[in-house]
Design a protein around this nucleic acid. Sequence first.
RNA 1: GCCGAGGUGGCGGAAUGGCAGACGCGGCGGUCUCAAAAACCGCUGCCCUCACGGGCGUGAGGGUUCAACUCCCUCCCUCGGCACCA
Length: 1034
Amino acid sequence: MAATKKQTAGKKKPTVRPQAKKTATAKPAARPVKAAAPQKKAAAPKKARSPKPASAGAPTAEQVRKVITALKAAPVEQAAPVEQAAPAEQAAPPERAAQPERYNPAVIEPKWQKRWEHDKLYRSVIDPSRPKHYALTMLPYPSGNLHIGHWYAMAPSDARARFMRMRGYNVMFPMGFDAFGLPAENAAIKDGVHPMKRTYANIAYMREQLRSMGAMFDWEREAISSDPEYYRWTQWFFIQLFKHGLAYKKLAPVDWCPTCNTTLAREQVWGEDRHCERCGTPVIKKNLEQWFFRTTKYAEELLRFDGIDWPDKVREMQTNWIGRSEGAEVTFPVIGHQSSSTTEAQMTDDSITVFTTRPDTLWGATFMVLAPEHPLVAKLTTPERRAEVEAYIAQAIRQTDIDRESTEKEKTGVFIGAYAVNPVNGARLPIWIADYVLMTYGTGAIMAVPAHDERDFAFALKFGLPILPVIERPDRLAKSFALGGTMHDGFADALRAEGIPFEERQGSLYITIPPEKLDRYIEIARRFVRPDSWNEVVGLRWVFIFHDGVWEWDSLEAEARILARCHALEPDVRDKRTVMEMLWAVEFYRDVLYHDAYGTMIHSGPFSGTPGATAKTDVIRWLEATGKGRGTVTYRLRDWLISRQRYWGAPIPMVYCPDCGIVPVPEDQLPVTLPEDVEWLPTGQSPLKLHPTWKQTTCPNCGKPAERDTDTMDTFMCSSWYHLRYLSPHYDQGPFDPKEYDYWMPVDTYTGGAEHATMHLIYTRFFHKALRDMGIVKGDEPMLQLRNQGQILGPDGQRMSKSRGNVIDPDEQVRLYGADTVRAYLMFGYEWSEGGPWSTENIQGVVRWLNRVWTIVIETVDGRRRSGDGSPADERALRRITHQTIQKVTRDLEEFQFNTVVSALMELTNALYKYRDSLMGTAAWEEAITNLLLLTAPVAPHITEELWQRLGKPYSIHQQRWPVADPAIAAEEVITLAVQVNGKVRDHITVPADTSEDAIKAAALASEGARKYMDGKSPKNVVYVKGRLVNIVV
RNA sequence: GCCGAGGUGGCGGAAUGGCAGACGCGGCGGUCUCAAAAACCGCUGCCCUCACGGGCGUGAGGGUUCAACUCCCUCCCUCGGCACCA
């Protein structure tokens, strides 16, 4: 079930997502290829272990290695019995011997896979004489079996790697396993199977499944993140980051299940209501000491994508994720609460610093809001407010993230009794706390400018806090509402006379005032307003019009004066706590009361009149000059929380000494290995924490007893550098062999799912840049080119899932059609970056195609149609198609356009059938057949290898050079051009390709269709598009 | 709500601003066969027409252009990401 959840979460690991987790016992897939145990050191997994040494502590790396070796060597216990029975139709028909041999992938595919492996055909070694190409595709999590999605990601990537290899590049295309992680551990809690045992059994099985794909993986470069020889260096990297100040420990809120009494990883928090995976209890936040990596230090650089070819989509997602905001920090002094009940303000030493992207709205601040967790809250809260404030904080902390972050939610908050002073105008601002202000962004405190911030507006309206517009509306919309009975007779006539438009409904006037007539309107309104009432203008200007004067609504003082007079005049508005609340009651006004656009500053003291274009920068400059604030940049990106209270991960290599504090494990003592003898109890506690002795160690510094960190690292840490471990998976002098690094890095082409855009793909860039700054790696980016595949859906167009019963099992498809057909279908059936539903019907097209390829080549070998009586024109035509196909396939493979690669190959195949009776046996035929196989080799490596051999060509087709098209042969001799009259096709003309433009135009004008539709008129213009058409404009 | 991608035959999908629908599935017809399947060959956007031919067509509406699936504006819908980020 964890897997189901993870499937929907969908962005947890840089792995190609498995469709569903397989437990160690469920393994229905029967496969034609026996999962051959590669090694013969068949020591059975050590089950009954000798008692641990009295000193206990961590097992040595050697101990763990032994177990792993045993597990790797042991036959996979849950592997299915090998199904040898070939499908009935594959049995060679004894009768009708004259029939050509049928295409039988079940025989040829395993045969060639064994041969390639035996010959180390895909072994990649440093070769300075050839250009290198590091092709990388995201590694799988060893869930237990391969999903069709893995094939969709990997098979086209393999085809492209093969293509690059045939073009002369020294290609490295490695594969490994992102082997640490939660599913194996959760499964262990259910059935007691040790995560290590399960994981390595799954890897052994999936490795064989991957082999059935016929990919050019170099298995000697395989890296498994849970091997001690791997995570030794994961830990080493942690220590390097720590030593360079990029890893730090701090108190941070984590999800906590109050029933299980433990923290939960994000993966364990389920559903919209964010409940605990095991007990269903909604999680709460709890503060714990956690390790973080300082990703924010690289926020600015991560926004730059110089020199790398990554999809815009990923770049944009990363840019949004990092979320750069320019603004200012402004400091608001706090008024002592001792005197808050008096009119005498008393300054204190305290101050609140806020971040704002709109310093141009500073004069409109009417209150302050702190996050409930803000450190100043306890200090500033007045005694009489304390009970209410503490109650609010308690419930806010209990809030789930979903509740708290929901934009639908009613605003809540409480006044803490204290006040701050607006440094720009001295206004006294009440300080509130509210959960819509997040401690984790900016400074955890805001100045509220309700007139120009939607959230502040809603909050102020709800709690009766004043709202004061300070930015002019860019649309210059002004309105006035004259309630029936508030104006003397003749008001409407006066407006009409002035040309001011209004609507009259039930005795009231709804007036929209043209900006240039604002002053005139105010004069007229003042003349007509009754002494016991008032009129007002809202929008472009904000004035209250009384019979004895026009009051500008331009400050908090004015707010108070206006409100008092209105209350005195009209009992109906006495329940309105602010001017804006009064205005909001008028439906007609609502669309002009709030806006968040930039515009000319108003009601802003000396800055009034500053145009919107420069307002922000002008104010920042002034803040800095006067010391009231400074321009700053804030990012949405948070530091990366590394700690996981989990067993199946790389232990954090840190020791806590009562005397020396936090001490890293000395590098020569790495790896800190996981203990094996742990119990799988549903306590929610990490087995590392519960283990009686594992955490006990001595301080590397002073030698006194000390404790290990019992947390492990986020598995994204492991996958942030796996591309480096592939370089030299068994190297023990460092994380990678520098010789290998210098030759192979950076990764030239990286393929995988776009769902990793904001997690893995940011982490790995951060990791590389941090290592660069430590002098460990070179260059600014780890992966030069990134391409994302889409997702294969179920045949019903829905996401594949066991519960829907729409899962396509690649093993079964391979059994039905062969790996080459599955590969070719995955490339042909979809725009690769889009994906789409699996179709059992459409795959038939590819089934037929490969059978046609098989048949035509076998016929060629048999020579049964050797006629060769085709005309020279036919030969030229076939050669032209052959060379055009070379051009198209080359270009489209380069561009990852796999679907049109296959369609071009189909067209060449169709051409061969067209000419099979006339040209078979000719040189043109030989050329076409040879190139068809070479061009198809990356797509369907087995069938092409088989047919290549049967043609008597030298092994291996995959070591041949990629064909090069001859443009002269590819060029058309005659071209057919459309003849358009006024853009509509009316005729076609066929001319030699080298016909001059003038002659073509003349021919077009003379064509029957053109003459008919020109209707005797003379052409105004004749447009010739080379090789395409002639458009006659009349 | 914000950001991004995308809407093309019955279906999957092709189309440097230049003949929309390549290639394939499905469908129809033919060859082969006692028959069926397979295989091979042909046709297949919609509408009118016996036909020749014509009209209409790339989510909707406008615009730019000799020419728009493609570029611009407005709107509708689908998918992905983010979401009280001050």
